[in-house]
Nucleic acid binder design. Structure first.
Length: 325
DNA sequence: TAAAAGGAAACCG
DNA sequence: CGGTTTCCTTTTA
């Protein structure tokens, strides 16, 4: 846990900007024959070991001012990945553009380390929160059951285009996982054990920080707000499809390419990538065989309930919430 | 050819 | 039991 800030910085550079997008599941396919289990389509991209920048550890700790300086010159500092495969992947991502942008006024270099750190932490928190919602797991790995662990593994593997190692971590709870050393990880998965271990470490660190934040006094207020953001779905009850669609629509940053508003005020939205939305829904509900045919049938059930309808001018893949927010 | 529509039955928390 | 999920046939764009 010693290198938490460094690790957090790592995932921010290589995680949030490349990871938690709708594209991360595009290679997630189910095995049509076995039907009941998520499976991998073999990633065509070679599994590069250098998915994160180890040296950023030191960078974040000692030289954050440098980072800010660089970012002033180039707002895209967070996308300096040495080898990005699929460069067409995510032009949308930087649209948020908050934080590391030239707009940051004032030359208060003393504050910059803190600023960068809390920004980094904030990004990680956001991404972890997104993943938690999508997978319906808690942010704290210690609380994961065997199924949660498998979901997390699958998610992380897809996110970083790792070869499938889930089976070698069978029957492990989150507690087991947390107790494992990097060596243990490497033993179970020589190819990507170290990467998995590093990412688990980030989750552990984040959970640990979160606990510190909520129990103790507000050390990093910006970051804490993100956790208290406890929105809609945290009510305990199983999520409804219409709620899930709303959540995706509320995060255009993450899902804008698979589902988006055509007219937010009227509640009209379009499913741009039906297969992808269905996969996300299946992942959320633990229905590996979910597809658009079935998802759309569920949407149609909403017609008579007055939750969703077809818009006045019916278009393919376009629906409308009867009661817009 | 994919999407839309809706009946029928199974499933599941 | 409600809310899907699954499977299916027919129609539409």
């Amino acid at each position: 846990m010693s290198n938490s800030i460094g690790s957090l910085a790592e995932i921010t550079v290589y995680g949030s900007r490349t990871g938690m997008q709708e594209d991360s599941l595009t290679i997630l396919e189910r095995n049509r024959d076995s039907g009941e289990e998520w499976d991998l389509v073999e990633a065509k991209t070679s599994s590069m070991p250098g998915l994160y920048l180890p040296c950023f550890d030191m960078l974040a700790m000692e030289d954050a001012a440098w980072l800010v300086k660089v970012s002033e010159a180039s707002p895209n500092v967070t996308r300096m990945e040495p080898h990005r495969e699929e460069p067409e992947q995510c032009p949308v991502i930087d649209s948020q553009g908050q934080g590391l942008s030239p707009g940051m006024d004032g030359p208060e270099e003393e504050r910059s380390l803190e600023q960068v750190q809390s920004m980094v932490v904030g990004e990680v928190l956001k991404d972890i929160e997104t993943a938690c919602k999508l997978l319906n797991i808690t942010p704290d790995p210690m609380e994961w059951n065997v199924g949660n662990v498998q979901k997390w593994l699958l998610w992380t593997e897809h996110l970083y285009r790792l070869p499938h190692a889930g089976r070698t971590f069978h029957e492990l709870t989150g507690k087991d996982l947390c107790a494992m050393s990097e060596e243990d990880f490497r033993q179970r998965s020589p190819q990507c054990g170290d990467t998995l271990h590093a990412h688990l470490d980030i989750w552990k660190s984040t959970a640990w920080m979160k606990e510190r934040c909520t129990i103790g006094d507000n050390k990093s207020p910006g970051a804490e707000d993100l956790w208290s953001e406890a929105d809609s779905s945290c009510s305990g009850q199983p999520i409804h499809l219409w709620q899930f669609l709303r959540e995706l629509l509320l995060k255009p940053h993450n899902y804008g390419r698979c589902i988006r508003w055509l007219n937010k005020d009227k509640g009209i939205f379009k499913i741009e990538d039906s297969a992808h939305v269905a996969r996300l829904w299946g992942l959320r509900k633990n229905r590996p065989a979910m597809n658009y045919d079935k998802l759309s049938r569920s949407i149609r059930q909403y017609y008579k309930k007055g939750i969703i309808r077809k818009p006045d001018v019916s278009q393919r893949l376009v629906y409308q919430f009867v009661h817009p927010v």
